[in-house]
Amino acid sequence: MVEALAVASGKGGVGKTTSTLALGMALADEYDVTVVDADTGMANLCFHTGLADADTTLQDLLLADSNAAVEDAVYDRFGLSLVPCGTSLAAFRDADPTRLRTVIAELAADTDVLLLDSAAALGSQSAVLPLVLADRTVVVLQPTIPSLSDGLKVQEYARSYGTETAGVLFNRVQDDAAIDRVAEQAERYFGGPTLATVPESDAARAARRAGEPLLAYAPDAAAATAYRRAADGLDLQDGDEDAVADRFRSAVIPEPP
């Protein structure tokens, strides 16, 4: 069984990587979970997981002349298989984003749930590819108009590639009184349910500074509890892993100009 979920937001600063790792750790109680830092232009999963000095990362796998094997870039931490992405600008420039397809195909063959931490902006082929490759998206929002606007936009981009919304997550929530009304209204426009509303959390910031996912650093924090609730609400769909891998491999993408 495998389902690939892109965790997307449409804008930065909403806590997308924190959310991806928290969902991953919560799902790992039941599933074999692989988290990929597919935000290759602004990689930061490594800083959330103490992998800033990792020898081999997704960046190496995306280089045309790379000899690295996919398994070299997979790190078992916090009960997850983590594929961090390096932050070298030169390597980002030289990377061939279309190779992400074969990397994802290989990872998909060996896990239950693939979470793709996706780019915040939608301005390039490499930023949109995770939305193309995923089965469904989880859209992370802050309860503000700019965030909702961008979330609607990312949902539309994903839908244009046939990738539907699995659910939305309201993060960094400050106004507890209003959020239920907002979430109910927002559900009319998003394809999936509101998975959880996660309160603004000092613990999340401290976890990031400590280089650990929130659920490892502060498992009893209110935000951590909310993320577990979100994972429970994700109705994961069985997929045929061979079919998923084939789908990733089969589509032909021309070389970038």
């Binding site: 939608l122 390039s124 082929q125 949109v128 590819l129 193309v132 539309e156 981009y157 839908r159 244009s160 590639y161 046939g162 589509a251 032909v252 993408i253 021309p254 970038p256």
Partner: peptide, 15 residues
């Protein structure tokens, strides 16, 4: 999205 898919050579993936 559709316009950019064309620019990025992803239009074959559109539904």
């Amino acid at each position: 999205a559709e316009q950019r898919a064309e620019e990025w050579g992803l239009d074959g993936e559109l539904e």
